[in-house]
């Protein structure tokens, strides 16, 4: 059934044809919004001068719903990639931006998303320097998919590598976990709480820069616990370093409403997706100061040290539960599925 409302201008296959409709869409929405010297060259791509080491990261965004409490797919596409570049110990500079739009998306929604991309890019200090817009038939996509690739200069003091991780290093989380995933789940399930759970999607690149300015190579690893959640990233760290990860359930920052939503939906917050937070593995001697620095930055006010790298149980994440018991935290096999009862 076609649910298009009469009178609403929508994107159709013509907008992806490469003809005048495409040109119109690009001129009216894309070029107008992202107006910058790189894009204004209107080449097939952009010509950029790079000096020194660069970090490059790409990501595709296919989230449903595309508009959610606390953000939309546009800002997510910027923040996600900006943060991935920052996790390499780099300062994000440029982004590519590619849309795959399903015909029928309203031009208004498309413009809203493009504007969010612009706002998020400005906030994190990156420029959109190349892009692409394709339109697919109805039913062949899900409203809109976005791919972004980020380019960033590696921080002069940045040295992020698994090889730097040592036994005794502290594990710091920059904020509340599971916020984004539960905002999306609550939206999908139509759950309402006393106050709304909002996605915490945001750019953390300036906080990362501050940490690197201040602590340099005492910051051993940075990771963005998006899909697979905190458990996924910590398991990877344990496996890839051949060292143990020991964490305490009581120390993990988890907002009460999010905890309650997880209980209701039968999900474990350790596996719920995050945005806007990161994990830092840092030398033990600077750990307290790193937490302090994070807490003084608006992007890290809820930061906490949740555990350390240990030599006791290589390749395993061991969590001490709220009641003092211990268990292994293993990565998720597939999607986290709600339980029957």
């Amino acid at each position: 059934m076609d649910k298009r409302k009469p009178g609403v201008e929508t994107i159709n296959l013509g907008h992806g044809s490469g003809g005048t409709m495409t040109r119109d869409l690009l001129d009216k929405i894309i070029f107008k919004t992202f107006n910058n010297p790189y894009l204004n060259q209107k080449h097939d791509g952009s010509i950029v001068k790079f000096a020194g080491d660069y970090a490059i990261s790409t990501d595709s965004f296919v989230i449903t719903p595309i508009f959610f409490k606390g953000g939309n797919i546009g800002e997510l596409a910027v923040n996600g990639t900006v943060n991935d570049v920052a996790m390499c110990g780099a300062i994000p500079k440029f982004l590519s931006l590619a849309f795959i739009v399903e015909e029928g998306l309203s031009l208004d929604d498309f413009a809203k998303i493009v504007n969010s991309v612009k706002k998020a890019a400005d906030k994190s200090g990156v420029q959109i320097i190349t892009g692409d817009t394709k339109v697919v038939e109805r039913g062949k996509g899900d409203k809109i998919f976005i791919n972004t690739t980020g380019f960033g200069e590696v921080h002069p003091k940045g040295n992020i590598s698994f090889d730097n991780i040592e036994v005794g290093d502290k594990i710091i989380v920059s904020g509340y976990i599971a916020q984004h995933g539960m905002a999306i789940m609550s939206e999908r399930e139509g759950l309402e709480f006393e106050s709304t759970i909002e996605s915490d999607t945001t750019n953390v690149n300036f906080l990362v820069k501050e940490l690197l300015d201040k602590f340099g190579n005492d910051i051993h690893l940075l990771r963005d616990p998006t899909r697979g959640g905190l458990a996924g990233v910590l398991s990877e760290i344990a496996t890839d370093t051949n060292k143990g990860v020991a964490i305490k359930e009581n120390e993990i920052p988890l907002e009460m409403q999010v905890a309650a939503a997880c209980e209701i939906l039968g999900l474990d917050p350790m596996y719920v997706a995050n945005e806007g937070i990161f994990i830092a593995i840092v030398a033990a001697e600077v750990a307290d100061e790193v937490v302090e620095t994070m807490k003084n930055n608006e992007k890290g006010v809820n930061a906490a040290c949740i555990g350390e790298i240990s030599d006791g149980h290589p390749k395993k994440v061991v969590l001490e539960s709220t009641i003092g018991g211990k268990r292994i935290v293993s990565p998720l096999i597939g999607e986290q599925l709600p339980r029957i009862c």
């Binding site: 539960s321 709220t322 009641i323 018991g325 211990k326 268990r327």
Partner: peptide
């Protein structure tokens, strides 16, 4: 029981 590590205790 397993998640909270009770068996160990």
């Amino acid at each position: 029981l397993v998640k909270n590590g009770i068996l160990e205790l």
